[in-house]
Computed example of a mutant assay.
Amino acid sequence: MAEKKQSSEPVAGLFTDDSGHPRCFWCEASPLYKHYHDHEWGFPVDDERRLFEKLCLEGFQAGLSWITILNKREAFRAGFAHFEAEELSRFGEKDIARLLADAGIVRHRGKIESTINNAKRVLELRREFGSLGAYVWGYEPHAGQDRPKKLTYEAARAITATAASQALSKDLKKRGWSFVGPTTMYAFMQAMGLVNDHIEGCHVRQAATDARSRFKVPQRS
């Protein structure tokens, strides 16, 4: 009996580079983008500075491509006190003027002022919940909630916001945060591992799933 040949047809939403590893379609543009996809996106985070950075950068990304923000991330870190909320919360008009003159970042006054405002709101959340991580992980969707059983390319493209991201957005806005709409919050949830949106067949999907299984969710105080 002749051996059955395996299909070599590409899977929708994935690409394979010289390494032979299939990856999600959106990270093909550069090695930096691939590294972010392979080692950060979808992996669980509870570190306070990293969480706040991801929140802020997703706000800056609104209306732009993520690769634009990723290419500017080191400049953002340098300009915004490495997203240490205590220091950033003390920024004033001189700092805003400095940032508006910094060509290395996205020079949008509203987003700059929002980042400073949100730093102050982080400190309030810490006093109430113990940490930003404890607050955010309280919005992790339950198994099957808001999610298709199999995340195909078509399913991934269709999801821009969910009940969980809407709830997170609504509560943050009530607490005085800005640039935290439901779509932005869903992108944040993807970035910090609250959901795993690596497409079925992506070689990183299982690694992100395994990381979540080992992850200890921070508890609210």
Rank of each mutant, 00 (worst) to 15 (best):
A158D: 10
G193Q: 07
F215K: 10
D146W: 13
E140I: 14
R126D: 04
A134C: 11
E140T: 15
T209H: 11
E86R: 11
R90L: 13
D95F: 10
L64T: 11
H37P: 02
G110W: 02
E128R: 14
V217N: 08
Q190D: 05
R121V: 01
T16Q: 14
L32R: 09
P182R: 07
Y36V: 08
T209N: 13
E84M: 10
P141V: 09
G59I: 01
A119H: 04
Q166D: 08
S8Y: 12
D18R: 14
W137N: 00
A155D: 03
I116S: 05
V45N: 03
H35Y: 13
F43E: 06
F215I: 00
A208Q: 02
A78V: 14
D38V: 13
I69Y: 03
L51R: 00
R73T: 10
M185Q: 14
E84A: 06
I112W: 01
G133I: 05
V136H: 03
L51H: 03
L55I: 01
V136S: 05
A143N: 08
K54V: 00
H142V: 13
Q166V: 05
M192T: 15
E84L: 09
M1Y: 11
Y135K: 04
L88M: 04
A187P: 02
R212E: 12
K170S: 15
A2Q: 10
A155P: 03
Q145G: 12
K216D: 08
R77F: 03
E200L: 12
F83N: 03
P22L: 03
L88I: 03
G59E: 00
V217E: 05
M189H: 03
G176Q: 02
